[in-house]
Amino acid sequence: MPADVILRVRGLTKHFGVARDGEAASADILRAVDDVSFSVRRAKTLALVGESGCGKTTAVRCIVRAMPPTSGNVWFRTTAGGVVDLAALNEAGLRPLRAEIQMVFQDPYSSLNPRLSVLDIIAEPLVVSGVRNRTVIRDRVANLLELVGLRPDHMARYPNAFSGGERQRIGIARALALHPRLVIADEAVSALDVSVRAQILNLLLELQDRYHISYLLVSHDLGIVKHISDQVGVMYVGQMVESADCQAIYRRPLHPYTAALLAAVPIPDPRRRRAAYAAPGEAASPRNPPPGCTFHPRCQHAIPRCKLERPQWAELEPGRFVRCHRAHELQLRGIEA
């Protein structure tokens, strides 16, 4: 594992057992995440992009071990410098590492316990990790609130006294309480109003510059991803189909699905209306993915081979991974800035 990599995921797979419903007897396994690999570098941001049901949320939940992965490795570089496989640890083994990986959630309403004061919410990680001195806790919470741009004297209030954006700031303060090295943000700004979204994105970027935190971002919004991330991984029906540098992927996508996603983004400029090319049909179900390349039924570049043979995850150019049989020959359009 290279020295600047803080998290390396290899072959992450999560299957769910699904009750047979008679219609498709073979469809009793849902491949929510299927052989996903990527690395997050120190103080950098990797974004997982994809549409609903592509498995991006399941993937991060496996990484934080909210659920156990079916197979694969999740190597994490701890503060001490060692590398541990989070996928192989049990609950007790994970507990000391919890402080280093924190999460910011999508819904600013359900992510804060409505019955606890802001003080108690932000203090929870501290209390759990054994800090008992009330003054120490209060000072730390006050610092954290200031850090995320809230007034420390509001710590006695309850979440319902805050707006969505402020709640998201509280959630960020909680995530920062234990000085994490990796923060996972699952659609952390998509529930917010446009004007508030910018504030939170700025805050996340500022915090990264200041504390050298690595972000693993999950989003369906390609605008946000472009804005905040250094690297992008595109997921489709449980698989990672392409990963590369953010700039490169937007300028020249290698996978037809990435190109279709980029073509579908509504650009906020009426002078750049596009003769919309939308990939036909809808995403396949991870319950019953098509054989071969999962994208082939919607792909305008598909050849017979795509229907039969599952493409391999391959490094086409240095740092550019793609899962497509024709990646080397296709010239796909991206978005010019």
């Binding site: 004007s195 979204r197 919004d221 800035a337």
Partner: peptide, 19 residues
């Protein structure tokens, strides 16, 4: 204040104060 696919990445977004 909109993060957009055509905007410059990692630039500080103009923000509106408050909510």
């Amino acid at each position: 204040s909109m993060p957009s696919v055509i905007a410059k990445p990692r630039a500080r977004l103009a923000t509106l104060p408050g909510a």
